[in-house]
Amino acid sequence: MSKKLHVTTTVNGEAVEFLCEPRQSLLEVLRETMRLTGAKEGCNNGNCGACTVLMNGVPVNSCIVLAVEAEGAKLETVEGLADHGHLHPLQSCFLEGAALQCGICTPGFLVTAKALLDRNPNPSEHEIRFQLANNLCRCTGYDKIVRAVQAAAAELRATKACGAGGSGTVGHADAGCGGPAVAGPAKTT
């Protein structure tokens, strides 16, 4: 019935064009057309947050966004978090703090937490728990996740206070939690 629609968007800073059917979710197109498999399909109905991406700076469940709605939007996925092979402090703090077990929920937590720290560099535990309420984890419980976000926030504040870069680009391997460089390709484009 419906012919494919042409969509122009920006993913992790790069212009991207794709064709999709109107019924396809943004998650489907990210994973199957763009091969960006960081965002995960958990519930596919907007409850679990494993598919979280940033759309124009705010976190959304990409399973309940139509891909065609991404026309003209600025998208950020977990693949855009690491900076040239260096993990983002959130990523290294999740690793160091063992804030994951099976890892399915982790990309969603990382993306939502990044949006939180972009807005609020020093959130309280209550604020972290409230803002991450739409991200469900069935393995670890939430304490380690909350502590990892707090550690990453502290590291980002320290980096900023040092004036390192000053451009908001952070995540060097030698900072704070000391995350290792990413072994594989840093970005899929």
């Binding site: 907007g46 976190p59 469940n61 991450l132 309420a133 739409n134």
Partner: peptide, 9 residues
Amino acid sequence: IGGWQISSR
């Protein structure tokens, strides 16, 4: 209304 991802939309 829902969590953050829901109130974004």
